[in-house]
């Protein structure tokens, strides 16, 4: 089946006074229709930047320096500003981290929904409003037909995030990019929001790219997961495989640092050191200074993701020639 989204060799660069910084470095991945792809990684690993690149919202002077982004086989990374705008919100919906600041405080929910719907669909004011009420009802806002005329400040954080999800889905997109959709919410609400998002996207037929640093959310929600480190994909594959049997030492380190109730250990394993700044990425594999299994080749040569069973891993440990040796 043709993937909804296909990212090929994408790089995003920022020219600065001290040289060009590469925030996203030559990454490739696909998202199948209806699939949920989780993207995890530390802050600054390039997760959000990848999301911004796909929807064409990288703040200048940042720019896509190479690679292709295809939405259902159609290139969207080189469109004109106006054509770019037409697929945002219509073919790709976006959910941001903070629902408290994502909605314009001066307009009612109805105004914001109807405005978005009518930008992308040839509906009358009344029909757009009906669709808006249906959307709000679907995301689980009680008495949607009355609440629709309220202002954002009259809703709680979780309810506002539901509204944001309704806004992201209001023109039947093929893909929803959710950038840390639950990070700003109460823990008790997080699971609900993830549920709403997953069910809604299934109902409206949208694939999800779920950006988060919360492994728990990924484990529950995603079909596949991409682990990002210093602007590159370290490992990508089915969620179960990656979590139960991490192949990249970085992924293994991440999994080891999650507390579980089953193993009654006093100390969690941690990865020594911290992710390098974009201006000081080491030669070879970006993870080599922190890697417990580092060997000579890692310090010189940069590994590209290598197919290994159901997944791809960017690590020399899994290169066929190294394993043979």
């Amino acid at each position: 089946m043709e993937p909804v989204l296909s990212v090929k060799n994408l790089s995003v660069q920022f020219p600065t006074r001290r040289g060009t910084l590469t925030a996203v470095d030559n990454i490739s991945f696909d998202i199948a229709p209806g699939e949920v792809l989780g993207v995890v990684g530390e802050s600054g690993a390039g997760k959000s930047m990848t999301g911004s690149a796909i929807i064409g919202l990288i703040e200048p002077p940042g720019r896509i320096s190479s690679g292709e982004i295809l939405l259902k086989g159609e290139r969207i990374d080189n469109l004109s500003t106006d054509n770019l705008r037409r697929y945002r919100g219509k073919r790709i919906g976006m959910v941001f981290q903070d629902p408290l600041t994502s909605l314009n405080p001066l307009y009612t929910i109805a105004e914001q929904l109807v405005e978005t719907i009518r930008t992308h669909m040839p509906l009358s004011q009344a029909d757009a409003r009906k669709r808006a009420i249906k959307l709000l009802d679907d995301v689980g806002i009680p008495a949607a037909d009355r609440r629709i005329d309220d202002y954002p400040h009259q809703f709680s954080g979780g309810m506002r995030q539901r509204v944001v999800i309704a806004l992201a889905l209001c023109a039947d997109p093929d893909l929803v990019i959710a950038d840390e959709p639950t990070t700003a919410l109460d823990v008790s609400v997080q699971a609900q929001i993830i549920d709403v998002m997953k069910n809604m996207c299934a109902e409206y037929g949208a694939a999800i790219m779920l950006i988060t640093h919360d492994m728990g959310v990924i484990a529950e929600t995603a079909d596949r997961v991409a682990v990002m480190y210093a602007g590159r994909i370290a490992e990508i594959g089915p969620v179960r495989d990656v979590i139960l049997d991490a192949k990249h030492p970085y992924t293994a380190g991440l999994m080891g640092s999650i507390p579980t109730l089953a193993t009654n250990s006093d100390r969690l394993t941690q990865i020594p050191g911290s992710m390098p700044r974009l201006s000081a990425i080491p030669q070879g594999c970006a993870f080599n200074p922190r890697c417990p299994h580092v060997f000579d080749r890692c310090r010189v040569e940069r590994p590209d993701p290598i197919a290994s069973g159901t997944r791809r891993v960017a690590c020399w440990l899994h290169a066929p020639e190294e394993q043979a040796a």
Binding site: R85, R88, G89, K90, G93, M94, T116, T119, L167
Partner: peptide
Amino acid sequence: RFARARGLT
């Protein structure tokens, strides 16, 4: 930013 992501003019 969200308004841009919604594809408004």
